[in-house]
């Protein structure tokens, strides 16, 4: 009998997304089971929009909480990153991951015109998780995240990009693909299933 791979070699998934992100994320995150064993950290580019006294951040969190089986919270400073949780990066600060697997924030100037910047998150995440990290770039009109994804690959992590044809805005996926040979280019509709198979050991 073949030994069954019961545990995933990966600990965390970082997702970078910009324009068109709400729909793309909504296609993926609600399909992941409550038992999904990775910590997922989502960085959606946006300004801080406040309406009805609620910041956009609260909106994103409640929007995904409603439809996701996994727990969804804001990534807060000093919080320990735990598997099975989805963390949303706050607006107006760069989000970083310390080697001790806690979040930290920074007000360094924008990187690639972005604050928060995907590159900043991916770079620090890969320094922490190394080959146990998956990076995913989705729709967007920015080149932010391309360098970060390459860094993840450089530290032997797994790199995924949304198939540009399936992206609302294909600039960001195309930019990521042009910078290094990504491991998998996936249509949006297939990403959640791919991730589930991956953690069950069906995909390498």
């Amino acid at each position: 009998m073949m030994p069954v791979k019961s545990s995933s070699p990966y600990q965390a998934l970082v997702i970078g997304v910009s324009a068109g992100g709400l729909n793309a994320l909504h296609n993926i995150l609600p399909k992941l089971p409550k038992s999904f064993p990775l910590a997922i950290i989502v960085l959606q580019h946006r300004g801080e929009v406040v309406f009805d006294g609620t910041s956009h951040n609260d909106f994103l969190i409640s929007y995904f909480q409603k439809d996701c089986a996994m727990s969804v919270t804001e990534a807060t400073i000093g919080a320990e990153i735990k598997p099975g949780n989805i963390y949303i990066a706050p607006a107006k600060y760069h989000l970083l991951i310390e080697k001790t697997k806690v979040f930290s924030l920074s007000l360094e100037p924008p990187v690639n015109f972005a604050l928060p910047s995907i590159d900043v998150l991916f770079d620090s995440a890969s320094a922490c998780y190394k080959n146990q990290l998956i990076g995913l770039i989705l729709t967007g009109a920015s080149s932010d995240g391309s360098t970060g994804l390459k860094t993840i690959k450089g530290r032997a992590g797994l790199t995924l990009v949304q198939e540009p044809k399936t992206a609302e805005v294909d600039f960001m996926p195309k930019s990521a693909i042009s910078l290094h040979t990504v491991d998998h280019i996936l249509p949006l509709d297939d990403i959640a299933e791919f991730l589930c198979q991956l953690i069950q050991g069906d995909k390498e």
Binding site: L96, S104, E108, D123, S124
Partner: peptide
């Protein structure tokens, strides 16, 4: 100092 941003700043 928190190491991740310190490392970034040193590299900058």
């Amino acid at each position: 100092y928190a190491q991740a941003s310190l490392t970034r700043r040193i590299n900058n």
